[in-house]
Nucleic acid binder design. Structure first.
Lengths: 354, 354
DNA sequence: ACATCAATGCTCATATTGAGCATTAAATAC
DNA sequence: GTATTTAATGCTCAATATGAGCATTGATGT
């Protein structure tokens, strides 16, 4: 192989827990990696410097990427990871402003980790924050999020109409329609990454502004390639406030990848149970699935599904803490893994009629 | 971030085409990376030095990983990639013998690429080879592959019984049962990677022998961690001959990842069409799906599925080349992407009763 | 004309899914 | 204590989707 310039491997973890029907991720606060001249444009988010927990991969010390990740997550946040899954490797140029400033190219590998509700405690600089604070258009549990019709839809259509020619406009319109389900199409809860990337390209999330400002500060050629319309109009500024809290670097993109992945995986692998205590009621189980998938499910049908598929079995005990009739407690039946090819708690595709 | 020792990023591509109902991948021949002392134990495969096309990621020249990949694949093999998808990033210590010999740690990112049948031509050192030559137990189109009952099943059970204590034995038996469907469980066509890794751990593929021999040659501590039983018995040697052709380094693992991924994706995204010409008959379409998923499908039901889901539309023309009644030619209806959340050609879970 | 090979059309039983009604068992309000 | 509220749980019914197979059609080859 030819000699290449220095690259470093960074590991980022999306560490998820669900408490009180709210999916949360572990974040850390970082001293601004965003230069001040870039911060200025961010308005409401100017002083928001949250990031995913991250650390370098140290080849000398760790036999595998997984082990490296577990090791520094435990050191940095005090959380011991159970279920861990690799998400994606990102290496786009300019994902990190320090690279523009002459640093090495950093390749970062994103991971998803699920921890039990009980372990959901912060420590040191780590802080649990609501997942949907970063991706507000993804939570449909209370119906179609208003931000979509009030802000995202009109702004995206405006962006589409702004394309340089007809074919580009059609492509943009198709992407908007596929991902935000604006005509007869349904809402595909798994296309989280595609939606975030669309908003990024259209300049409707704070990261677009920030990265553009960074590029400009270094007067690199990337400034010329700035994809969004130049007009710094009021509606766009309003959009930046409404499309959720940004994260440093490309961490919100990694977060979107993680949400999409976990939603897809729910269907065919019993991963929810990684987030629940050993024994739980069916409603607790349902709430966790709903929290992650972002939609509400029909209670009776949900019970029928998990029981008929023999994903759970009663422990014999009852939960008497809650309001109504005491709920039977269940535990996960690990044996299903052996019995059926692809057990999962199928979240049905949400149709528009709903 | 702390200073870490040198790492290099390598990109590996599983480039797939389907011709004559056979899925094929592009391979290259490499001068032996396996030291001669390791080759000696490989019997039938001693002189087999195939590898996936691979190249370094050059941060100076390429803006993204994708672009880097496309660039050297085109240079090296003359194939221009269309659909490309990142698979997984591997960085286990000792995946590369050159590292043991004092070279840098190499992190490799696996990619899956699908190309049209028509472009399936070799060039230079590149060569198209049948996918199932490397993973023979994965092709169930002619029924349960004999190698499973003749070799894999007994050898895996023997390996399980060899565990150091009862709980380890149970865990091994469970894994065997889940992945090779030995009791009432079905065959989950997507667990390709898990099956390969099981065979690797049990010492039933040539790579286990080779990697062990390599470790031994460097008398590293890894030799002590050799997972398989020491007995170099005739049945094991026979197994090594029967469990398919090895690839250099961990490329067969990457290949297994790719097959599992493509099988999973078939269900919910219309990726098959990337492998077909613009216009095709429904039988051609079915054959490609069968070739990839490794199972045979019910013809009438398959047609009903693709037509009812409006994945295809007739071109108006007919294929008169074949034997029987001329088949209507169809094309992919790109609009489905916009209309329905997760269109795919669902391969039903194969039940054991069959 | 007839046999053969596929393509295509159609039916039927079974399973899965989406929606809702009804009943039961506890806690809380009066 | 009795009524009201909150959930859990049991069941039904219609609409689809899936798995298997029978029947017919339209070419080619003898």
């Amino acid at each position: 192989m030819s000699d290449t310039s220095a690259t470093e491997i960074g590991l980022n973890a999306v560490i998820v827990a669900v408490t009180a029907e709210t999916p949360r991720i572990l974040t850390v606060r970082r001293e601004a990696m965003t230069p001040p001249d870039a911060s200025a444009v961010l308005g409401r988010w100017a002083d928001s410097h949250y990031a995913l927990p991250f650390g370098p991969f140290e080849p000398e010390q760790h036999r595998t990427l997984d082990l490296g990740l577990r090791s520094w997550v435990e050191e940095q946040t005090g959380v011991t990871l159970g279920y861990v899954e690799q998400l994606y490797t990102f290496a786009d140029r300019h994902r990190d402003p320090r690279e523009l400033a002459g640093g090495p190219r950093i390749v970062s590998i994103g991971y998803l980790a699920l921890v039990h509700e009980a372990e959901a405690h912060g420590e040191g600089a780590a802080e649990w924050r609501t997942w949907y604070e970063f991706l507000p258009w993804e939570d449909w549990r209370k119906g179609r999020p208003p931000v979509i019709d009030a802000i995202i839809r009109p702004q995206l259509l405006h962006w589409a109409s702004d394309a340089k020619n007809d074919s580009a406009r059609l492509r943009r319109e198709e992407r908007v329609s596929i991902n935000f389900g604006l005509d007869d199409a349904g809402w595909d809860s798994e296309r989280v990454l595609e939606r975030y990337e669309l908003l990024y390209e259209a300049g409707l999330v704070a990261e677009t502004e920030r990265d553009f400002a960074v590029s400009r500060a270094h007067s690199s050629s990337a400034a010329a390639a700035h994809p969004i319309s130049e007009q710094d109009d009021a509606p766009r500024r309003e959009a930046l406030e409404a499309t959720g809290r940004p994260l440093e670097l490309d961490h919100r993109r990694i977060l979107a990848t993680a949400l999409g992945r976990i939603r897809g995986k729910l269907r065919y692998r019993p991963v929810v149970f990684e987030l629940l205590p050993d024994s739980f009621t069916l409603l607790q189980l349902q709430r966790v699935v709903e929290a992650l998938s972002g939609v509400v499910l029909h209670k009776q049908n949900f019970r029928r599904l998990v029981i008929n598929n023999r994903l759970v079995e009663p422990t014999g005990a009852y939960d008497t803490q809650q309001r109504g009739r005491p709920a039977k407690l269940f535990r996960f039946r690990r044996e299903v893994l052996r019995e059926r090819p692809a057990p999962g708690v199928g979240v049905p595709a949400l149709r528009m009629a709903g």
